[in-house]
């Protein structure tokens, strides 16, 4: 689940995929997770950080993480 190299992210939550030329916008939490992923953090670390910071249920976050991975895969942002 490593993020592709060279993915450009901006403070505003914009993402540019230089491999495909596509642009994406994300919500604040998406930007936060992306930056953690860029720093090479693994899923468990990221989830723990989110749970600590936000009022999320672990079950909810687990469901949403599944969905998040699908979104990244769909957007061609993962290096597999």
């Amino acid at each position: 689940m490593k993020l592709r190299k060279n993915i450009a992210t901006s403070e505003n939550g914009f993402i540019f995929n230089p491999a495909t030329g596509d642009s994406y916008s994300g919500n604040a939490i998406a930007a936060e997770i992306l930056s953690m992923m860029k720093n090479g953090q693994i899923a468990e670390e990221i989830k723990a950080t989110i749970l600590e910071k936000y009022d999320a249920e672990p079950n909810q976050l687990d469901k949403d993480w599944e969905d998040w991975m699908l979104q990244l895969k769909q957007a061609n942002l993962l290096d597999e």
């Binding site: 916008s25 998406a30 979104q71």
Partner: peptide, 14 residues
């Protein structure tokens, strides 16, 4: 106090 959670979302800019 914890922040309000929202599921992460990215959207393609078409």
């Amino acid at each position: 106090e914890k922040l309000k959670y929202e599921r992460p979302l990215i959207k393609k800019m078409n």
